[in-house]
Amino acid sequence: MAEKVEVAQVPFMRVGEVAIHYRLCGNASRQPVVVAINSLGTDFRIWETVAEELAPHAAFLLYDKRGHGLSDLGALPQSIEDHAGDLERLLGALGIARVLLCGLSVGGLIALALHQRRPDLVAGVVFCDTAHRIGTAESWDARIAAVDAEGLAPLLDPVMERWFTPAYRVAENADYAGYRNMLARQSPQGYAATCAAIRDADYTQAARAITVPALCLVGDRDGATPPDVVRSLANLIPEAGFAVIADCGHLPCIEQPAALASHIRAFLAALTEGSSYV
C-alpha cells in the first residue's frame, strides 16, 4: 500500500517582525523535512516541480524569504542572519525539529547561517549553485544602484542570461516567459535589500565548520556561480560531495528538475540510512 502524500497547504505565519508565506507538502511521515530555500529574485514556486516529483519520498517545506513573493519586506537594512532567523523561527512555529536544507544561490548562504546558529536542527545540506561568498562588493553595489534608480526592468535580460542556458531562453518556451515575469514582479526593495545582504556575507569559516553530510551541485552553464566557484565551496566542507548537472544554468530546479530531484532523493536516502553519498 502506497504511503499517503499530504495535500499541500499554503498558509502564512508571522515570525518575529515579518509574515512569511510558506507551503508544507509531500509525505508528512518522512523525516527529515526537506527545506527548499529559494534564490534572489524568485519565490517558492521554483521548487514545485521538484517537490511534486519527490512527494512520495519526502516532506517539503517551501517558503518565500522576506522581501520576496508574498512574504513581508521587513525592516531595512537586512542581513543573511535576518533571513536565517526567519527560517529558524518558522521551523520552531511549525514544530519541525530536523531538516535537510536545500539552499539555492543566496539560499545556500542562508543554509550556512542556519547551520552555524542551530546545528542541532540540520541533518544535512544540499548546496545548489552557491558559494560561501558570492560576487564582489563592487558588483553588488552597482546592481543595488541600478535597482534604486530604475527598478528591476533593466536587469531582466542580464539576469536571464546568468540563470538559463540559451536553449531555454527561447520565445516559444512559455516557462521561460513565466519565470522572467516572476523576477520582474518581485519587490525592488526586497531584491535590493537581499543584494546588500549577499554583498556583506562571508561564510568561509562557517563552511569549514559544517559537521553534517553535504552535497554541492551546480549547472554546467551557470553564469552566476560557475562550477569552479561551487567546487571551491565543496573544497571547504569536510567530505562534501560535488556534482555537475548537464545542460543547466543557475536554477536546476527549473531547468533540470528531474536531475536535481534524483540527486536530492539519493542524498536523502543515504542520509536516512546512515551511509555516505560521497
Score class of each variant (00 low, 15 high):
residue 237 I to P: 05
residue 272 T to M: 07
residue 32 P to K: 13
residue 167 A to C: 01
residue 171 A to S: 12
residue 224 A to F: 13
residue 246 A to E: 14
residue 118 R to W: 01
residue 245 I to D: 02
residue 243 A to E: 12
residue 269 A to N: 00
residue 34 V to A: 15
residue 110 I to C: 04
residue 107 G to W: 04
residue 74 G to C: 08
residue 100 L to F: 10
residue 215 L to I: 13
residue 201 A to M: 10
residue 11 P to Q: 08
residue 82 D to Y: 01
residue 25 C to V: 08
residue 273 E to I: 00
residue 159 V to M: 14
residue 99 V to P: 07
residue 44 F to I: 02
residue 268 L to E: 01
residue 23 R to D: 05
residue 26 G to N: 11
residue 160 M to S: 15
residue 209 A to Y: 10
residue 241 G to K: 07
residue 237 I to D: 05
residue 111 A to F: 06
residue 59 A to S: 12
residue 39 S to E: 15
residue 122 V to H: 00
residue 186 Q to V: 02
residue 125 V to E: 07
residue 243 A to K: 14
residue 259 A to W: 01
residue 278 V to S: 13
residue 102 C to E: 03
residue 268 L to W: 02
residue 34 V to I: 14
residue 189 Q to A: 14
residue 251 L to E: 12
residue 210 I to A: 11
residue 185 R to I: 00
residue 159 V to Q: 12
residue 175 D to K: 04
residue 118 R to I: 04
residue 46 I to F: 06
residue 93 A to E: 15
residue 172 E to V: 00
residue 104 L to M: 11
residue 163 W to G: 11
residue 46 I to C: 11
residue 50 V to R: 04
residue 203 Y to G: 09
residue 273 E to L: 01
residue 203 Y to L: 15
residue 185 R to F: 01
residue 80 I to R: 01
residue 121 L to W: 04
residue 218 V to I: 14
residue 165 T to G: 05
residue 67 G to C: 07
residue 50 V to M: 12
residue 252 P to C: 15
residue 207 A to K: 10
residue 219 G to R: 04
residue 22 Y to N: 08
residue 262 S to M: 05
residue 159 V to A: 14
residue 183 L to P: 03
residue 79 S to G: 02
residue 87 L to M: 15
residue 186 Q to I: 02
residue 27 N to Q: 10
residue 69 G to H: 02
residue 143 R to H: 04
residue 147 V to K: 09
residue 102 C to G: 00
residue 44 F to Y: 12
residue 190 G to R: 07
residue 218 V to K: 05
residue 63 Y to H: 10
residue 99 V to A: 08
residue 148 D to P: 00
residue 199 R to C: 05
residue 21 H to A: 13
residue 132 H to N: 14
residue 231 R to H: 15
residue 18 V to Y: 05
residue 165 T to W: 11
residue 55 A to S: 12
residue 207 A to M: 13
residue 266 A to Y: 01
residue 257 P to K: 04
residue 257 P to G: 07
residue 83 H to M: 15
residue 3 E to M: 13
residue 209 A to P: 10
residue 193 A to F: 00
residue 90 L to P: 01
residue 131 A to K: 03
residue 74 G to L: 02
